[in-house]
């Protein structure tokens, strides 16, 4: 069984997502200026760009961890306008559809790895403990951490914690996975084991949006490369094309800084 099949349960539909005219400001400070992005089902989108460009904020707007001031989000049959009141049913549907992996893992430190993955399944999907644990064990095995099931996160390395966090998100059958700099807090070597899991997930056809500084991953794995700078998307398209021949000077400057070091 592949990671995504486990993630799907049986046959969850691949989902795309459409974000239109997303804007966000803190007081006078604009952080997102009319950003639109359409993601096709089963594709991988890599978001790159200098820090402060708004990549993470944009990603966090997708599942409304940040509330945009205006714009629309369309996912599955739901259309959400975050600038207006979002009813709790739409919000719950959005959060159920979209899984998220954080830079700092954010595992629950007082629960074992297994409990971290099973507890949300029980509460959000109403699975029994046995069902949830069975599923958690499948996922732990797939990310290579079956033997860590009963350890607490503090007993696991950063790379292991991040893989547990990925399993925790997958356990809820998301149609889309968001990754917010999943390897930035890790040693380069340890980061590889996390990237390997993500590559496998991508190969299985999971819809993924990844904020990353891993240029090789962005080039090899993503279907669409999106470059953000100054609160906007300045360029998007085929990753190889953009990396070898960027159209914007700002993109060129950024790529030179990250690739030629």
């Amino acid at each position: 069984m592949t990671l995504a099949q486990i993630a799907d349960g049986q046959l969850a539909p691949r989902l795309g997502i459409k974000l239109d005219n997303i804007s966000k400001r803190y007081g006078d400070h604009v952080v997102l200026d009319d950003v639109s992005l359409h993601v096709e089902p089963g594709t991988v989108t890599a978001l790159i760009g200098p820090s402060g460009a708004g990549k993470s904020t944009f990603l966090r707007c997708i599942n409304l961890l940040e509330r945009p001031d205006s714009g629309t989000i369309q996912v599955a049959q739901h259309t959400i306008q975050p600038g207006k009141d979002v009813n709790s049913r739409d919000l719950a549907a959005l959060r159920r559809t979209v899984g998220m992996v954080f830079q700092s893992f954010n595992l629950f430190p007082h629960m074992s790895a297994l409990k971290n993955i099973s507890f949300p399944q029980q509460k959000v999907l109403g699975r029994s403990k046995e069902e949830a644990d069975e599923r958690s064990m499948q996922l732990l095995e797939r990310v290579g951490l079956k033997d860590k099931a009963h350890q607490h996160p503090s007993r696991c390395s950063g790379g292991q914690q991040q893989r547990i966090a990925i399993a925790r998100a997958l356990a809820l059958n998301p149609g889309i996975m968001l990754f917010d700099e999943p390897t930035s807090a890790l040693d380069p070597e340890v980061g590889l084991e996390v990237l390997a899991v993500m590559r496998e997930l991508a190969a299985d056809g999971m819809t993924m949006i990844v904020v990353t500084h891993e240029m090789q991953f962005a080039r090899d794995v993503s279907d669409t490369l999106v470059v953000m700078a100054d609160c906007r998307i300045i360029e998007q398209g085929d990753p190889r094309a953009i990396m070898s021949d960027p159209q914007e000077t700002r993109t060129r400057r950024f790529l030179r800084a990250v690739l030629e070091r």
């Binding site: 599942n63 961890l65 979209v98 998220m100 954080f102 954010n106 595992l107 629950f108 949300p120 509460k123």
Partner: peptide, 15 residues
Amino acid sequence: VPRGQLEASSALGLA
């Protein structure tokens, strides 16, 4: 309790 714990809970859709 770190903010990340609340964010993870929200992202998971916990009530």
